Amino acid sequence: MRAAVVTDFGGPEAVQIIERDIPEPGAGQVRIKVAAAALNPADAITRSGVLPADPPMGFGWDVAGTIDAAGADTGWAVGDAVVALEDNLVKALGTHAEYVVVEGSAVAAAPTSVDAVHAATVPLNSLTAAQALDLLDLKPAQTLLVTGAAGAVGGYAVQLAAHQGIEVTALAGEKDADFVQSLGAARFVARGGAPGRHDAVLDAALLGETALEWVRDGGAYAGVMPPFLPAPVRGIRTAAVTVTADGARLKDLVALVDAGILTTRVAETYPLDDAAKAHARLAEGGIRGRLVLLP
């Protein structure tokens, strides 16, 4: 099968398409024939060589596709349309391939309201947003500031928090005001503005100490990248989400997609063979929605 890997760390040109044996699922695992797989900033981190690991390394966290083979005791059957998260930060092969093996517990039935391309944008970003909100432990009517609110994680965080009855202020670029308010933000603040203090901040934009200043004394801060977690001040609880695969939680999030509560966004699609071009487009920035690879 074909798979995207990096053998020498570097820029987008370092992405290679190689041939590998089709992986076999073990007990509790399933093999998914990949229909679509999103490209995320985490893949750029893998490519750059920041992680403490040696190449070759595979790319890809999200997958939408069809069960192709199943080990014992998975509860899944060949032919099931599914989505899943492959949550290993360091991997020899990821979801940017024709086939991927994941734990059966990481899998959820695919949404029925969107196609595989859009479904592939759900697992990583929605689970990251949901698990970050878990860290904040907010109650209805409490106030939350989401930085990077127009991004993939930030957008899901706004929608999930608003659905829970939390009063959301969205911090994003000025041109994104209408968009983030359509997601359920009660208030919009343009990047560079003064959001004031809130019960909590979900810092999807990685602003760190700057965002921490917008949390009230004794409030809570959740980041989305542990190495950039700021030190706590003024009695504020600080934590950063390390996203983990959770098929049961993903099932709930898929249900919210089908209910129209979570909005999927696809910016562009690329053939798997053009993975390097997709990485180059990601590096350019200014993307609203995810780039998706098609084997």
Rank of each mutant, 00 (worst) to 15 (best):
A116T: 09
V30G: 00
L89P: 12
V101L: 03
A211F: 06
G155V: 08
D246S: 06
D273Y: 02
A108M: 08
A130M: 09
A200V: 12
D274Y: 04
D68N: 04
A275C: 14
A278I: 10
R20W: 05
K251D: 15
R197E: 08
L171C: 04
G28N: 11
Q131G: 12
A276H: 00
F179A: 15
V114E: 09
V180L: 10
V122H: 02
P295D: 02
P140V: 11
A36K: 01
E213P: 09
Q181D: 11
V82H: 03
F188W: 05
D80N: 11
K139M: 14
A109D: 02
D176E: 15
D246V: 13
A64W: 04
E284L: 13
A194S: 13
A129F: 07
L293D: 11
E86W: 14
V107W: 03
L135S: 05
P295S: 02
G196C: 10
L207I: 08
V180F: 06
R290H: 15
P55C: 08
A53F: 14
I236A: 04
E13A: 14
E209H: 10
L282Y: 06
G28R: 06
V215E: 07
S48P: 00
D203A: 06
A259L: 15
R237F: 15
A177C: 06
A280Q: 15
K91W: 04
V34E: 01
T169Q: 05
A130S: 05
A120T: 13
L160V: 07
A245K: 00
L124V: 04
G289E: 02
P52R: 12
A130L: 05
R216V: 14
G49A: 13
H198W: 05
G193P: 12
A84H: 03
D217W: 05
A64R: 02
A255V: 14
Q131K: 13
G286T: 02
A170G: 13
D217I: 10
I67E: 01
L229K: 03
T74K: 07
T66G: 08
A152N: 04
A141Q: 08
A69T: 10
I67H: 03
V114M: 09
A132C: 09
S105K: 12
T263A: 15
A162H: 11
A27Y: 12
Y99E: 01
T143F: 00
G26L: 09
G260P: 05
V224N: 06
A84Y: 02
I32W: 00
P140G: 14
A42E: 03
G71S: 05
G286R: 03
P52C: 08
V100I: 11
D62E: 08
G193M: 09
E209D: 13
N88D: 13
S182N: 15
V100Q: 07
T210H: 07
Y99A: 02
L250A: 11
K175T: 13
R249T: 14
D68R: 07
R2W: 04
